[in-house]
Structures are given as structure tokens and as C-alpha cells.
Amino acid sequence: SLSVDNKKFWATVESSEHSFEVPIYAETLDEALELAEWQYVPAGFEVTRVRPCVAP
């Protein structure tokens, strides 16, 4: 099958004044980091952490 098993990760994104967490959907932690950097670094943010979303 061609289905992709995307998992939810939380990326911590920082600017000079703010820090916030955004959801990233990817297959692996490395891919989540790449996606977060691709989305947020060009906008002037720094991705400081990516972690798996742990269900309660």
C-alpha cells in the first residue's frame, strides 16, 4: 500500500522574543526536524527542539 504512517511531533520554534511549539507530521524524528527547519528557518525562526508527541 502507499499509505504513509505519519506521526505527530512537537517542534519548539524560537524567535528573538518568543518561543512556541508547533505540531509537525512526519514519519521519523529526522524528517520532522527537516520539515520544521524548512518551514520556519526562512521566516527567521530557530528550531531548537523536536520531540515525539506522547499520547496521554
Rank of each mutant, 00 (worst) to 15 (best):
A55E: 12
K7N: 07
G44P: 00
A55H: 11
A26L: 01
E37F: 09
R51C: 05
P56K: 08
V41G: 15
F45P: 02
D30L: 13
V50N: 00
A55R: 09
A26T: 02
S3F: 08
E14C: 06
A26Q: 01
A55C: 12
S15V: 06
Y40G: 04
D30V: 10
F9T: 00
C53F: 05
A11N: 01
I24T: 00
E37T: 09
H18C: 15
S3N: 11
W10R: 02
K7Y: 07
A36E: 02
D5R: 14
L2Y: 08
C53H: 12
K7M: 07
K7F: 08
G44H: 01
D5V: 15
T48E: 03
E46N: 07
S19F: 07
V54Y: 11
L2K: 13
L33I: 13
A55G: 12
D5S: 14
H18F: 15
E17Y: 12
R49M: 14
V54Q: 10
A11L: 06
S19H: 08
D30W: 13
F20A: 03
Y40F: 10
I24Q: 01
V41D: 05
F9S: 00
V54E: 13
V22C: 07
S1N: 11
E21G: 06
V4D: 09
K7V: 07
E37R: 15
L33P: 00
F9E: 00
E31L: 09
E27Q: 14
G44W: 02
D5A: 14
E37Q: 12
A32E: 00
V4Y: 08
P23A: 14
E14S: 13
Y25G: 02
V22G: 02
T12K: 06
F45W: 05
R51W: 09
E37C: 08
E34R: 15
G44C: 03
S1Q: 11
T12V: 05
P23D: 04
V4R: 13
W38D: 13
Q39I: 15
E46D: 07
S3Q: 11
D30I: 10
S1L: 09
R51F: 07
P56H: 11
N6V: 15
H18Q: 11
A36H: 01
V54G: 08
H18A: 12
E17A: 09
A11I: 12
K8R: 09
E46T: 09
E31K: 15
A36I: 05
C53R: 03
V41H: 10
L33K: 14
T28I: 02
Y40S: 04
V54D: 12
T28V: 02
T48S: 05
V22F: 05
S3G: 11
T12Y: 06
V4E: 08
F45N: 03
F20E: 02
L2E: 11
F20T: 03
S15R: 07
Q39E: 12
E46R: 11
E27H: 14
W10D: 00
E46K: 12
H18I: 14
S1G: 11
D5C: 15
E27R: 14
N6M: 15
R51I: 11
V50S: 01
V13E: 00
I24H: 01
L35S: 04
V13G: 01
A43W: 14
E27G: 12
K7T: 07
E37D: 04
R51S: 06
E14W: 07
P42A: 12
A11G: 02
T48R: 05
Y25R: 03
L35Q: 08
N6S: 12
V50P: 00
E37L: 12
A26I: 02
S3C: 15
T28D: 06
P56N: 13
V47R: 00
S15T: 09
K8D: 03
S1W: 08
T48W: 00
T12S: 05
S3Y: 08
K8N: 04
A43N: 11
V22I: 07
D5M: 14
D5P: 14
V13W: 01
K7R: 09
S19K: 11
S1D: 13
A32T: 00
L35I: 11
G44A: 00
G44T: 00
V50F: 03
W38F: 13
D5L: 14
W10M: 09
L2W: 08
Y25D: 04
S19Y: 07
T48K: 07
R49N: 14
N6L: 15
D5H: 15
H18L: 14
S15W: 07
S15E: 03
E21S: 05
A55V: 11
A43S: 08
E31M: 12
V50Q: 01
V47S: 02
E46I: 13
H18E: 12
P42S: 10
L29G: 04
L35G: 02
L35C: 06
S1M: 11
A32Y: 01
L29N: 03
F45D: 02
L29V: 06
F20C: 07
V50H: 01
T28M: 02
